[in-house]
Amino acid sequence: MNLVGPCGAFGAWGPLDRADPPHFNSMKSNMGSLHTLRKWLLAKTLGFGVTLLCLGGATATSALAKEPFDFLPLPEQAKPVAEPAEGYRLQRVGTNGYVVMSGVVQANFFVTKTGVVVVDAPPVLADKLVKAIKSVTDKPVTHVILTHDHADHAGGASAFPGAKIVAHALTAELMRVYPDPKRPIPTLTFSGARYDLKVGGTHFQLIYPGPNHETGNIIVYIPEQRIAMMTDLFAPGWAPYLGWGNADHIPGLLKSYDALLALDFDVFLAGHAYRIGNRHDVEVSRAFFLDLWNWTKETIAATPFDPSKAEPGNLWLAQSIWFKEIADKVTPRLIAKWGNELAAVDAFTHSTVMAVVVSTFTDAPNIPDSALKP
């Protein structure tokens, strides 16, 4: 596929095929070939995202429409669900809980005896969340629990003035770095691993398993209703987003899975995708994590780093080629095993493998072998 656009020095993009990278030793004296290598690395390593940014939305959409890519179809369990005229779906969970869904974004609220407790407030749902609450009760929103600081889940909190904003102290600390009026600084925070919040007869356990998707990202657990919530750990029925959702601490994801599975729950609410989740979804996503982590580690050991594939001294380029070689080996294995069960395994997995490669060297966690078994 040839995509041509206003990409500055890179000019036209070459075919995005599965060809091997040009070897640096064959082009040391040819700057045009170096240019070819850079184009190839950008196209293959950064993928279509760079191309889309370079071309601009309309042109990119047109190009993609003319030549569709050959990706795996979505499994039935992961397909989108039609939305009613209101523009959102409202699903009851537990005895007093509701999930508001629009597109792939979700938020939750619980109607207690004394008021409404909201868990996360995505900005794209802010108006819909307010409407959904009013369709169920005239009680005021007294608390907004923020699982973490990211704007796509906290950026609608200002729609509930007067409510107590509840979060981990680490989340509040992050939100103070660049204050955002759309994300009010939490007024009720806790430190450490757990906080019990009781509102109008409903018991919310706020559990911090350690850094994971984001520092401060917490589990919200309602034991009496067997409901567990953790936003952005994964989307039920889906493979991970790019770089496992740009995870702050990839090894900490495993701790989060294990902390969740230590709880007694049937319903799992994840903040994203087209349906609510369950315990089996958590188990499946953990199993995918183990395959991704273990196979990446095995492949690193079996794939020697060869700096001669880049210009002497250009460690960035040499490592990017090596990362890609590892991801090229791991990704097909993951697609072969998980492609029929999880959605979009062939979308971001290649880049996620490379993120795991970096994590194994920088985070370098001393994970016990027993923890890396199914």
Rank of each mutant, 00 (worst) to 15 (best):
V141D: 01
A167E: 03
A154P: 09
L170E: 05
A167W: 01
H153M: 13
A154N: 00
I145M: 01
P161K: 08
A169Q: 08
H143K: 02
T171V: 00
T147G: 11
A169D: 11
L170I: 06
G155Q: 05
I145N: 08
A172K: 07
T142A: 10
L170T: 05
A159Y: 04
A157E: 02
G155W: 07
L170D: 02
A151G: 14
V144S: 00
H168I: 03
A163I: 05
A167I: 04
V144M: 06
D152Q: 13
S158G: 07
P161A: 13
A154E: 08
S158T: 11
H143E: 09
G156K: 06
V141F: 02
A151K: 11
I165F: 04
H168P: 06
A157V: 00
H150F: 11
H153D: 11
F160Y: 11
G155A: 05
T142C: 11
A159L: 11
G156H: 04
L146M: 02
D152S: 15
H168C: 06
I165E: 01
H150I: 11
H143G: 02
I145R: 10
A154D: 04
H148V: 00
T171D: 07
H150T: 14
P161G: 13
A157K: 08
H168Q: 01
A163T: 10
V144Y: 08
V166N: 03
A154R: 03
T147K: 06
T147I: 14
K164I: 06
H150Q: 14
L146A: 08
G155N: 03
A163L: 10
A159S: 14
A157T: 06
D152G: 10
I165P: 05
V166Y: 00
G155E: 04
A172F: 05
F160Q: 03
H168N: 05
H148Q: 12
I145V: 10
F160L: 12
F160P: 05
